[in-house]
Design a protein around this nucleic acid. Sequence first.
DNA 1: GAGTATGCTACAGAATGTGTAGCGTCAACG
DNA 2: CGTTGACGCTACACATTCTGTAGCATACTC
Lengths: 108, 108
Amino acid sequence: MVKKPGNPARGSSTGRPLMVLLDVLGQRWTLRVLWELRNGRVTFRALRSLCDEVSPTLLNARLKTLRDLALVDLDDEGYGLTPKGADLARQFAKLDRWAEDWAKDVLR
Amino acid sequence: MVKKPGNPARGSSTGRPLMVLLDVLGQRWTLRVLWELRNGRVTFRALRSLCDEVSPTLLNARLKTLRDLALVDLDDEGYGLTPKGADLARQFAKLDRWAEDWAKDVLR
DNA sequence: GAGTATGCTACAGAATGTGTAGCGTCAACG
DNA sequence: CGTTGACGCTACACATTCTGTAGCATACTC
């Protein structure tokens, strides 16, 4: 089944958008892909390199989902974020700094 | 190996905190657990219910990781977020509203 | 037409997640 | 004391998902 808000997320009978989002983001590499696209369009193969050579099988699966969800699109420049996707990526950009602080905390 | 900033994340030789965070959050149910703890402490069994009856095996594994990462702790009231964990959860709280808007967009 | 790049698929083996049953501990009840 | 019920948590067989490698079909360059 296509993952989309309105369709039930795994383990949640409601199609509540946040649950669908958490379901999708909670699959390996999804967050990472969004993160690596933050600086503009990249080819499939370049994206693979950025993601430490994920298997193309999986990368393609993720990109398909993200395209269904209107977060990513593909043109002759390669893959890139849609406006909504960029918006989401921006939310995660804040996490980068947060993670640095957090690391200091954890490692003490 | 214990997941911690400083240790390499899966698929990333660097221990860069964000990568570790993405690795951890990109495991099923991790985001959901953080989300369900947003309103205060809950017992293991209650948390399980909130998470649509995830298997206790997995829930326990996730909680262990989140405790290692100082995002969650356990006392006689049950499981709850640490200050850092609450901070992180707050970041994701914004996602709830975002997801609602996004849903309208996707479903058009 | 050989070389190189693209997006993407196939497939076997490994890792991860799921679902159910139940253990050991404790506190309350009668 | 013996039962009942709730707690955190573990065992284990089964299912799904992810990984890694090989390679196809297409297109453009020399």
